[in-house]
């Protein structure tokens, strides 16, 4: 029997060393610690790489405008503003939509559509971000420019500077926000679906038994019960939007030195600023500043994600869905 052969093999091993389990433990421990080492290396490298900029500016450069590397003028406020605004727009759009989708998938969808629809929504998360960016550039930006941005800028925008023109090439904060929204939608929807699925049925029955409609049941029993988990899902989506690079870089317009008052104006995000300038940085100061921006971004996304995971974990008491944050 094969089992017997295998047995004799390990017995010879066992005779040579009595410490098989210890060696195995040490081996796996070594690789597990490699993961810890990777995190430490990423943090350490970004810390050391940014020391020059930190020594010179501290964090003050994050709060002033005017980005001109040639003049040694580094004001990252436009990047911070662009990151927050585009992610904020993304969250405003994808948040309600994602929650509604999660509600549909978990509470209302007929059984046989459930799994194909879930799969299709999750497929949105699997498409590489550079393809979103390219689709944005070739298809969505021209469409958005002529059918949404231009008419709004001409009418509402006249009295409302946030939506004012000129819409120029069409690339800008708003478009970036919308593309980011599409990208984080599956994260929010999948997590909402997962945390709603663990709401016990007796809570639903309690509402139905007093004559509630389906929506009243969802509104008063299901959503409140899963509230923490849903907020966690929103935060995970936000974390993804904050760190997203390629799609934002391609459609946001790359205006690095000033803040546009209009959402239709161009901008830049922290991640896309780093991606576009680090490969051809002028000098070590320029490099160091960009690395510092990446470090700050790392810190912020870590905090957002830690908070989110805590909430989702508390709500679901189990592993979070496979959607990457």
């Amino acid at each position: 029997m094969a089992q017997a052969e295998r047995l004799s093999t390990w017995q010879t091993f066992q005779q040579r060393t009595k410490h098989g389990d210890v060696i195995f433990w040490l081996l796996t421990l070594f690789f597990a610690l490699m993961v810890v080492a990777l995190v430490a290396a990423v943090g350490y490298v970004a810390w050391v790489g940014s020391s020059e900029a930190r020594g010179r500016f501290g964090l003050s450069f994050l709060f002033k405008t005017g980005w001109d590397p040639n003049a040694q003028n580094f004001g990252a406020l436009p990047a911070i503003y662009g990151t927050l605004v585009s992610s904020g727009i993304a969250l405003l759009i994808a948040g309600p939509l994602g929650i509604l989708i999660g509600v549909f998938l978990s509470e209302l969808c007929p059984q046989r559509f459930k799994s194909p629809l879930s799969f299709m929504v999750e497929l949105l998360a699997a498409i590489p971000s550079v393809i979103y960016g390219m689709w944005g550039v070739f298809v969505f930006v021209p469409f958005f420019r002529s059918w949404v941005a231009a008419p709004i800028a001409k009418s509402v925008g006249k009295s409302f500077p946030l939506l004012a023109g000129p819409v120029a090439a069409g690339r800008g904060l708003m478009v970036a926000g919308i593309i980011l929204a599409i990208m984080i939608l599956p994260t929010i929807a999948a997590i909402t679906r997962d945390v709603l699925a663990v709401v016990p049925n007796h809570q639903r029955e309690a509402m139905l038994a007093v004559g509630a409609t389906r929506w009243e049941m969802i509104r008063k029993a299901v959503l409140p019960y899963a509230r923490a988990g849903i907020i966690g899902g929103l935060m995970l989506g936000l974390g993804r939007a904050l760190g997203e690079t390629m799609a934002a870089l391609m459609v946001i317009g790359s205006v690095k030195d000033k803040i546009s008052t209009s959402l239709f104006g161009g901008g830049i995000t922290a991640a896309s600023l780093v991606a576009s300038e680090l490969p051809n940085a002028n000098d070590s100061m320029h490099e160091s500043t960009l690395i510092l921006i990446a470090l700050v971004l790392f810190g912020i996304t870590l905090c957002v994600n830690a908070f989110a995971r805590l909430l989702v974990w508390q709500a679901a008491r189990g592993p979070v869905g496979s959607a990457r944050s």
Binding site: P200, H202, Q203, E205, A206, M207, L208, A209, V210, G211, A212, T213, K220, A221, P224, Y225, R227
Partner: peptide, 29 residues
């Protein structure tokens, strides 16, 4: 819904609505 408000039900496992107070649990209907 019309039937359930005329014919009340109590379940095997006590199921107060978790996010509501005692008062609101009774008042919900």
């Amino acid at each position: 819904q019309a039937v359930r408000r005329r014919i009340g039900m109590v379940f095997q496992q006590p199921n107060p609505l978790r996010m509501l107070s005692i008062f609101e649990n009774v008042a919900i209907g």
